[in-house]
């Protein structure tokens, strides 16, 4: 295990301050998104909130990590971009699948407060046709 003071004593002060700012902002934005997940009323509102953490929050923390490790190693450290690219691609895909299944479940059960529109264009399933006739 690496000692904390031993590891950070090679870091110049500007890099320490920049890393501190980036990590703090990222954690704060992630907390904001998660509190939104806790406090918002309906499921379709709650889907919006955690994406704040998975885009801006992750971006800030990864930039802080890149600054810290690039300055500590003395060479460019870009492997954090892997996580950034992967999360940018997978978050919309996962949430689109999730919201589509939630919409399907709500329409099958005939709940109120369901957004308008056909969830699967070009493929008319039975519950969608029933909703559109109402």
């Amino acid at each position: 295990m690496i000692d904390i003071e031993l590891a950070f004593e090679n870091l110049p002060p500007w890099a320490a301050l920049l890393t501190a700012f980036c990590v703090f902002m990222g954690a704060f934005l992630t907390l904001t998104g998660s509190v939104g997940l806790l406090r918002l009323k309906t499921f379709y509102e709650r889907v919006h909130a955690p994406t704040l953490g998975s885009t801006l929050g992750t971006g800030f923390i990864l930039v802080g990590s890149m600054i810290c490790f690039s300055v500590l190693r003395g060479r460019l450290s870009v492997h954090e971009i892997l996580i950034a690219v992967f999360l940018t691609i997978t978050t919309p895909v996962g949430f689109m699948l999730l919201v589509r299944s939630a919409l399907y479940r709500d329409r099958v059960e005939g709940n109120d407060n369901v957004p308008e529109g056909n969830p699967t264009p070009g493929k008319q399933s039975a519950p969608d046709a029933a909703v559109q006739q109402d």
Partner: peptide
Amino acid sequence: LGLDTFYVNAMLLLLTYGIRVAS
């Protein structure tokens, strides 16, 4: 949705801990 948020937050917590111990 809670599970998705949970794993993203856990990932960020591990990254922050990695910065803290410089590993």
